[in-house]
């Protein structure tokens, strides 16, 4: 009896030793991959920062209004943000590869799913970035056009343009990562329709006088000319 227990114990210890013997090199490989990955991530971050500096990315972001947006949200400068993003993407990829090197079968599928999901996340982030740039650009264009046309509520108009473009961008990004896409699509349709209807009603009620002026100006320019006769050129 005692021999049987001892043998079983011995066998178990042998199995454990064999498993540890098998696992230790994998652990070491994982640690190596993570450390090398960390170094590569730091290198990528530095390269990304330099490349963006050469491409005058800060000036571009400043002129597009993204830098201002990030400052308002207490986020780092656009160049730092993109460099940090590069660091984390690269390091996460190496982390996942390292975990995969452990050879845990149950984790392998999950990791490959995460790895397959990464490009989609990247595209979604890109959509968000371009969308925010476009939203700022269009909002500023609307604001300037409204101010130069002496329209009241210029900022409200610009804000509405920004809101609509951001709304469209966020729903596209969520659609990209397939996150509850039916819900997102339905919510977007309802929200977009409601906003447009609201704007149409508000515009119709609030700007009857303006619409009349615009139509009068279009169809009888002589009337409008009487208001202002100075020439600028």
């Amino acid at each position: 009896m005692a021999d049987t227990i001892m043998n079983s114990l011995k066998e178990m210890l042998n199995h454990l030793a064999a498993a540890v013997e098998q696992f230790l090199p994998r652990l070491l490989v994982m640690l190596m991959i993570i450390i090398v990955g960390w170094l590569i991530a730091i290198l990528s971050k530095t390269i990304a920062r330099r490349a963006l500096a050469l491409a005058k990315f800060d000036a571009l972001s400043e002129s597009a209004g993204t830098a201002q947006l990030l400052r308002n949200a207490a986020l780092p400068a656009p160049r730092d943000l993109v460099a940090s993003l590069t660091f984390w993407v690269v390091w996460i990829v190496f982390l996942l590869l390292g975990i995969d090197a452990l050879g845990v079968v149950s984790l392998r599928d999950q990791i490959s799913q995460v790895l397959l999901f990464l490009p989609q996340i990247f595209v979604a982030v890109l959509i968000l970035f371009v969308g925010f740039l476009l939203a700022n650009f269009l909002a500023r264009a609307a604001l300037l056009a409204a101010v130069n046309a002496n329209l009241p509520f210029a900022r409200l108009l610009a804000g509405s343009v920004r809101f609509l473009v951001v709304l469209l961008t966020v729903s596209m990004a969520l659609e990209q990562i397939a996150l509850a896409h039916r819900t997102v699509l339905i919510a977007f349709t309802i929200l977009f329709g409601a906003v447009m209807l609201g704007l149409a009603i508000a515009f119709g009620i609030a700007s009857q006088h303006l619409a009349r002026q615009v139509l009068q100006k279009s169809f009888s320019p002589g009337e409008a000319e009487k208001e202002e006769e100075i020439t600028h050129l």
Binding site: Q68, R140, L143, L144, N150, A154
Partner: peptide, 13 residues
Amino acid sequence: QGFRLGVEELGAI
């Protein structure tokens, strides 16, 4: 009016 509206609304720019 154009000047005042500009100063009021275009502050950030």
